[in-house]
Design a protein around this nucleic acid. Structure first.
Lengths: 356, 356
DNA sequence: CTGTTAGCGCTTTCAC
DNA sequence: GTGAAAGCGCTAACAG
């Protein structure tokens, strides 16, 4: 039963209403909004003007998406917790790059968290997205299984099946920075790894731990780069202690690094190769608090090249990766502007005072 | 014309297909997913099992949203640029809180940037959202006009029409921290404001500048709190120089603060009341670089209570606001879990060493 | 250039 | 407990 037209004032106006009001067909109104070449400029103007006058804000997004099968929404899955991802400079930059491109092409970004504390399900509304960009050190299979299998997907910083990927030259970059650091002829080298292990473990890596391989995590590639440099400098692997850090946050880094810095002076490393700037910066702060001088008593290198590491003194020696660009590339791929493929972006070495 | 069933293998399966396969009506299948009480447990099981077997992932989000008029998507409009918002600890916390609640209730978060460098239009797909949370110092009217007028909307940290709002006790909080600071009997007080002016201006505020009023920006309320404290301590407004900072980032703060710190020692303030921790932290870093001791030569207070200010030494004296909770409250309101109203959250004073 | 028409996949009365 | 049927608002053939 149709409501009397008296009551319709509160309902939002539809394309059909507008067509009736103007005495044209719905197709014409639709064309006025979607295919300007399909009707005369004059008619189009008239339709658009009338639409504005009546407060019609264009075709309803829900109906349009059902009809066309496309929503102009791209889902970005952050495999870590949102709390972490949003506070991390690197993920934030990635998102910035993604958003920039999506926005420029009339798309919007649906934020999906892969690891929300409470619920472990990707909400059904996620399937509204036309495609997904997945970012993280190592998203769970569980998570990947929740995404619509036939949607386009671009992985960033990890590999999944044969899907297109955006990543960086982790191994060569780490090789390069380690070579640089080793020219100082450090006596005791230590490596601070990020999520290198299959099991959750925060602290010194022992022989019983299981390493992920480089197909599973980029941090393994970083380690490989460090090792290659060490070997070329005549330092054997088993002389180099490794520590694992589970999450790239100040809070999680702190106890591990305290453990290292509080070693007796003749055991404490005088070079710490860190797999992230966050780790290196935490080390820097904790070292300063203990009166350990950087770089005189302790050489430090990071990875990422985040701003915070360059806006301080001493500045961090690190590898700069352009995460914004990573986001842009991923977005272009998912929108079909770039061919879907494996894309590897280059990094640059930044020489700060933490390891001159 | 219907395609022969041979070719349908690649098409995703629909609810109708599933119903046909099972020999039940579409209504029953729909009920199996949405209203378990409407059918026998056995039948429901059978339907759900068959769905899994055939790879049917539940009702299509687009169709469902058209039919029901709800998408289970909430738009979060960040009025600043995303680059800024995502890198800012305070906005990140807000998003975290929003996401937490949305996620727990099966909703997702559509990220909308109010101030993207290129395009100034909110994409049409934004209207897919069931409601909006708008956050920012002072979103443009233009931006607000682009949002669907009849959608629920919650404003955070600013006021718009009669819409429900989540905010904090800016004026009393600033009064309190200023009172604390003034017990040190500083000789020269300076105030570093954030976006206080109608015009874009980065630097010393002069008499010709136009201040926003407290209905327009929360930073004006912060200033009012500072002024109340100053007056109670017998310090007149025109003795207190004001500087404006346009964007709460290290890069934008730096030149303004350098200008202040490089004043002759007998003109340089010995207490800087800063409207954000970012500003205070930048001041701290720049002061250290110049050998200006904090708190001996310079007292500093911040606002926000971000982690970075507490994980260093000296720690910042500041006002802690719980932005995660702000996000949670906003999300609960927009989902209709809390009544839409004006909600004011309390803050706490944190005493660090930057102004003991 | 414009109009007619057939659904997109689903939910929801309302009968049975 | 279950099914038939009527659209939600729109777009894209296709015919004129």
């Amino acid at each position: 039963m149709r409501k009397a037209s008296v009551t319709k004032s509160k309902q939002p106006i539809t394309l059909k209403d507008l067509a009736r009001e103007l005495g044209v067909s719905t197709a014409t109104v639709s064309n006025a909004f979607n295919r300007p070449d399909q009707l005369s400029t004059a008619l189009r103007r008239r339709i658009l003007d009338e639409a504005k006058r009546l407060g019609y804000r264009g075709p309803d997004a829900r109906a349009r998406s059902l009809r066309t099968g496309r929503s102009r929404i791209i889902g970005v899955v952050l495999a870590e917790t949102l709390t972490y991802s949003l506070n991390d400079a690197v993920s934030s930059e990635l998102l910035t790059g993604v958003a920039e491109v999506l926005d420029a092409h009339g798309h919007t970004l649906l934020l999906l968290s892969g690891r929300q504390p409470g619920s472990s399900h990707v909400p059904g509304s996620a399937s509204m997205a036309d495609g997904f960009i997945v970012y993280g050190l190592m998203p769970s299979d569980h998570l990947m299984g929740e995404l619509p299998p036939q949607s386009p997907l671009v992985a960033v910083d990890f590999y999944v099946d044969e899907r297109p990927t955006v990543h960086i030259d982790n191994e060569p970059a780490c090789y390069a920075i380690a070579c640089h650091a080793l020219r100082h002829k450090p006596k005791r080298v230590g490596i601070l790894c990020l999520r290198l292990l299959a099991e959750a473990h925060n602290g010194r890596i022992e022989s019983q731990h299981n390493w992920l391989d480089s197909a599973q995590t980029i941090t393994r590639s970083r380690l490989d780069g460090f090792y290659r440099a060490l070997e070329e400098h005549g330092i054997e692997r088993d002389q180099v202690p490794l520590w694992n850090i589970e999450e790239n946050t100040h809070g999680v880094c702190t106890p591990v690094i305290e453990e290292i810095l509080d070693l007796p002076e003749d055991e404490r490393p005088d070079l710490l190769l860190c797999m992230s700037d966050r780790i290196a910066l935490t080390a820097l702060t904790l070292a300063e608090q203990r009166g350990i001088r950087v770089p005189e008593d302790l050489l430090l290198t990071g990875f990422d090249g985040i701003e915070e590491g360059q806006y301080r003194s001493p500045r961090l020696t690190t590898v700069r990766q352009d995460s914004i660009e990573k986001g842009r590339v991923a977005a272009r791929m998912i929108l079909g502007l770039d061919a879907p493929e494996h894309r590897r972006l280059n990094t640059t070495l930044i020489l700060g005072e933490s390891c001159p």
